[in-house]
Amino acid sequence: MTVVVWIVEGTWPACVDAARTHAHPGAGIVLLHVTPADVPGAAHGAFAGLLGRGHPERDPGTQLAHLAAASADQLLTTAAQRLGRPCTRQERTGRVEREVVTAAEGAELLILARDGDRTHLGPRSLGPASRFIVDHAPCPVLLVWPETAPGIATIPPPPPPPSHPPQHR
């Protein structure tokens, strides 16, 4: 059994704790972090377009890529320490939602946290990437609250009853 745990800044502790609770002792655990590819690319494009290409050592895209890699490595190291058992750390770069879905192929379980409006129960508690992942995951998904879930009184009201058009005889 392989359990993939999506590690994201701000919500990762709840995901790691869920893996400790729900993954059986013999399960292989993969701690996954995905760095979006678009940020360093945009910085590189801006630098190349505005300032030319004469000084690649000053390219902010390269600097951002190095900072992102160091940050991801530190985050995965901290998550592995919290997990407290053997695991594999995996860093990917690309479209976050697609990289997570691809990494979950063949897994027995994918663990991720809600990342939208966490003050209310309901669909808005998932951000766009998480919604995509939940809708397209090729394995079962364990969706956790990064903090205590809001009470059921926060459930949005039901939609109004449909109005019936007049019937013609």
Rank of each mutant, 00 (worst) to 15 (best):
V30E: 09
P36E: 11
P36I: 03
D38R: 06
D38W: 06
P40A: 12
G41T: 15
A42T: 15
A42V: 13
G45N: 15
A48R: 13
A48C: 13
L51C: 13
G54R: 10
D59F: 00
D59N: 09
P60E: 11
P60F: 05
L64V: 12
H66M: 12
L67V: 13
A69G: 14
S71A: 14
S71D: 15
Q74V: 13
Q74N: 14
L76A: 12
T77A: 15
A80N: 11
Q81G: 15
R82I: 12
L83H: 11
G84Y: 07
R85C: 11
T88S: 07
R89T: 12
E91I: 03
R95S: 08
V96K: 00
E97W: 00
V100H: 02
V101E: 00
V101G: 00
V101I: 00
A104L: 00
E105T: 05
G106H: 01
A107L: 00
E108A: 09
L110D: 07
L112P: 04
A113K: 01
R114A: 07
H120Q: 13
H120C: 11
L126F: 04
G127Q: 02
F132Q: 09
I133D: 04
I133H: 02
V134M: 02
A137D: 04
C139A: 03
L142R: 08
V144F: 02
V144N: 05
V144Y: 02
P146V: 03
P146C: 04
A149T: 06
P150Q: 07
I155G: 12
I155T: 14
P157C: 07
P159G: 13
P160C: 08
P165G: 11
P166D: 09
H168Y: 05
